[in-house]
């Protein structure tokens, strides 16, 4: 049977649209390439969240891969990713340093006491100065830094175990304790 083209046109236009949607679904609209990728980490040294006398800095974990997780108690996505961070911490492949961003010390400490603490140390950045150096524009964000002190991966938005296994683990050297 002959199909006149003008009646088929809506279906064809829709097929093209679906093609774009499939392509779009595979992409993350929040994925904005960080200029920091493959660059040395922006150095910092800040007060520790738990103890103002103690300094926490970017050099603390040098020589091995580590994660920097930017979080705050006012951020809903941070609550959402917290359980995933706890599992990553338990897994023990990489230590996680927290960067508590534009937050209140008491609230932040209460948060960690209630929900558990996945961090080896937490830097306290109430004015967001370090976050600016790192190009943070929202929380949560998570950076992976390799053993040579270069940023190799930036994830914007809540992390989950799926993202962790698909996007982060392949970037880690096959090391001890890994699957």
């Amino acid at each position: 049977m002959k199909l006149p083209l003008r009646f088929l046109a809506p279906a064809l236009a829709f097929a093209v649209l679906v093609g774009f949607f499939i392509a779009g679904l595979k992409r993350d609209p929040g994925e904005i390439p960080s200029p920091l990728i493959d660059k040395p980490v922006p150095a910092f040294s800040l007060e520790s969240l738990g103890d103002p006398a103690w300094r926490v800095g970017s050099a603390d974990l040098a020589g091995r891969p580590w994660l920097l997780n930017v979080w705050a108690t006012w951020c809903a996505g941070c609550r959402q990713e917290h359980d995933a961070l706890m599992s990553i911490a338990r897994e023990g492949r990489v230590p996680i340093m927290g960067l508590n961003w534009r937050d209140d010390r008491t609230l932040a400490l209460r948060w960690l006491a209630q929900l558990g603490n996945p961090y080896v140390s937490v830097a306290f950045d109430p004015e967001g100065r370090v976050a600016i150096d790192w190009g943070v524009y929202g929380a949560p964000e998570t950076f992976l830094i390799d053993a040579t002190g270069r940023v190799v991966k930036k994830h914007i938005g809540p992390i989950n175990l799926d993202v962790w296994q698909r996007e982060f683990l392949p970037l880690l050297p096959a090391g001890e304790g890994g699957p």
């Binding site: 779009g24 679904l25 595979k26 609209p29 959402q80 938005g157």
Partner: peptide, 27 residues
């Protein structure tokens, strides 16, 4: 698909399901 992750939790499985459904109904 159009909204930044900061605005709304996204889940690719959900997107794929709706897209399949959409294609079936509209297509």
């Amino acid at each position: 698909i159009l909204i930044s992750v900061h605005a709304f939790a996204t889940d690719p499985a959900r997107g794929a399901f709706i897209l399949a459904f959409l294609s079936a109904v509209i297509g």
